[in-house]
Amino acid sequence: MTDLTGKTALVTGSLQGIGLAIATALAGAGARIAVHGIGGDAQIHEVCEGLRAAGSPQAEFFAGDLRQPDRVDALMGAVGAWGGADILVNNAGIQQTGPLADMPRDAWDAILAVNLSAAFHTMQAALPVMADRGYGRVVNIASVQGLVGSIHKGPYVAAKHGLVGLSKVAALEYAAVGSARTGGVTVNCICPGWTETTLITPQIEARAEALGGDRDKGIADLLSEKQPSRRMSDPSEIGALALWLCDPVAHNVTGTAIPVDGGWTVQ
């Protein structure tokens, strides 16, 4: 099993969904977790307590508005003072759908800032420190829509395609750092398809209601449009993949964009 004892992981957007699942997987391997996201005090307390219960020796919350570069710098400075991130997971993301002709410019700016620019800022701060240590992992949570297009999601698709490209550049720049023994420094993307999170619950409920209240049929109907397996992924499965990428054995897996999409992107 992967042992991350002595490692510190910053997971953005880790108060729920895929981010929390990744943080939980890393906590279970013994990593300290720098929690980040938008939530109230009660939720933050519950998440940190849960991560400690999962095996993390420390789990603390770090604030930072990813739309603002100076706030990202402050976030990275605070994590640096805490020991610095050996593992960086850029998971936080926002989305707004609509035709290009109707997309507000402020929505474009916000989506690009959170989903792409913030990852540039966090990587720029974290990667040199990882290089000095001979071990580092950046796991960027992209999307199948970082690999293919989708109507009415122009800013999101642009940001996720950009994140995949940025990750390839960073992977090349740090590919020769460290060794198999130290684990090296790698940069990879995970590209989930339909994944069971609260974000898509309304869509599932609407499909289920149209099919007589059968949730499983609703899911299959929703996924049939894109995902051939007609099965959603559980966030814990994304967490398990992220954990494996952090293992030293994955020192030669870098610059990849790994789909977890039930065959969506091979059609």
Rank of each mutant, 00 (worst) to 15 (best):
G239L: 00
V129R: 14
I204C: 09
P57M: 05
K217I: 05
D261C: 11
A74H: 09
D132G: 13
G193R: 04
V89E: 03
A176P: 04
A159Q: 06
A170Q: 06
A92L: 05
D106L: 09
D70H: 15
S224W: 03
V266L: 13
I238P: 00
M103W: 13
M123S: 12
S233K: 08
A242N: 01
S233Q: 11
E60N: 12
I94P: 00
W264V: 06
A125K: 04
G136P: 04
H45E: 15
L223E: 00
P104L: 12
L147G: 10
A27R: 00
V253W: 07
F62D: 04
A206R: 15
N188Y: 03
M76K: 05
T256P: 00
Q96F: 11
T97E: 13
H121I: 09
A23I: 01
S150D: 13
G134I: 06
T182W: 04
L10R: 00
L51I: 01
L116P: 07
A126Y: 02
L88F: 06
V260K: 00
L223Q: 05
G165R: 07
T2A: 12
A25I: 00
E60Y: 03
G146C: 12
A220Y: 04
T2Y: 01
T197I: 05
D214C: 06
R215F: 07
H152Y: 15
D106S: 14
L127T: 08
T254W: 04
G263N: 11
G83S: 07
T201H: 10
G134Q: 07
G6W: 08
T8G: 05
P259Y: 09
A131R: 11
G162N: 09
T195M: 10
A74Q: 13
N188D: 09
N90D: 09
I38C: 08
M103H: 15
A107F: 09
A54P: 00
A54C: 03
L241W: 02
A250P: 07
G212A: 10
Q145W: 15
R215Q: 13
P155K: 01
C48M: 07
L51F: 02
